[in-house]
Amino acid sequence: MKFGVVIFPGSNCDMDCVHVLRNVLGQKVHELWHKERDLKGCECIVLPGGFSYGDYLRTGAIARFSPIMDSVSNHVRKGKLVIGICNGFQILCEAGLLPGALIRNRSLRFICKPVYLKLENNSTPFTRISRKVLKIPIAHGEGNYYIHEDGMKRLKDNDQIVFRYCGEKGDISPEFNPNGALENIAGVINKKKNVLGMMPHPERCSEEILGSSDGRLIFESIIN
C-alpha cells in the first residue's frame, strides 16, 4: 500500500510514522511537505503528531489551511483513507473533517505515558483487530475531547467512537481518563468511516523493542 506522511512545520512524529510504515511494515511511503498539493497517488494519508505551527492560535488551527489540506479534503471526499495521530487528530477536527474539538488537558499538564484503549468499533478499515484492549502511549497537552450534546448523540448513533481510555481489562471509568475527554473518548471516525483521528501514538509502539507492538495492529489493519 502506498502511504503519504504529511510534514507540517513543527511536526515531530513524521519520521516515526515513515519508519514504521517503510522499515517495519515494508510499505511504500512518500513524505509530503505541507506546501505540496500532489498526494502522489497515495492511498492512505497520515497526519502525524507534533506541534504544527508551534500550536499557535489553537492546535491544528493554522495547519488546516496548509495547501496540502485541500488535497487531503478531496482525498477524503473520494472515500480514501486518512489517519490523524495526536496533532493530526487536532488538525482534522479544526478542518471539520472530524467532529468535535480537542481542548487543554484537565490537569493543564502535558501527559506522556502508556494508556489502555478499549476498541469500541472493530469494523473500520483502521481497526479490523480481534483484540479488545490495546496498550498505546499518549503524549499531549491538548487531548481533552469535547463535542456538544447533539454531536455526541450522532457519534453514538453512527458508531463513530473508536477508542476509549480504559483500564487493563477494558473497564471504562473516570479513573482511567487521563485528560478529561468526554466519555473517555480517545479516538473517533467520520460517518463514512474513512477518516480516523486518535490521540494515542500507534507509531511509537509498533516494535517489540519499544515495549509494545500493539500500534502495529492499526497499521496492519489499514494495509490488509
Binding site: R104, N105, N144
Partner: peptide, 14 residues
C-alpha cells in the same frame, strides 16, 4: 472565549 458549556481548565486553575 470558550463557550459556557465547555470545560475551561485554565479558568478553573486561575
Amino acid at each position: 472565549n470558550l463557550k459556557r458549556d465547555v470545560s475551561d481548565p485554565q479558568g478553573l486553575a486561575v
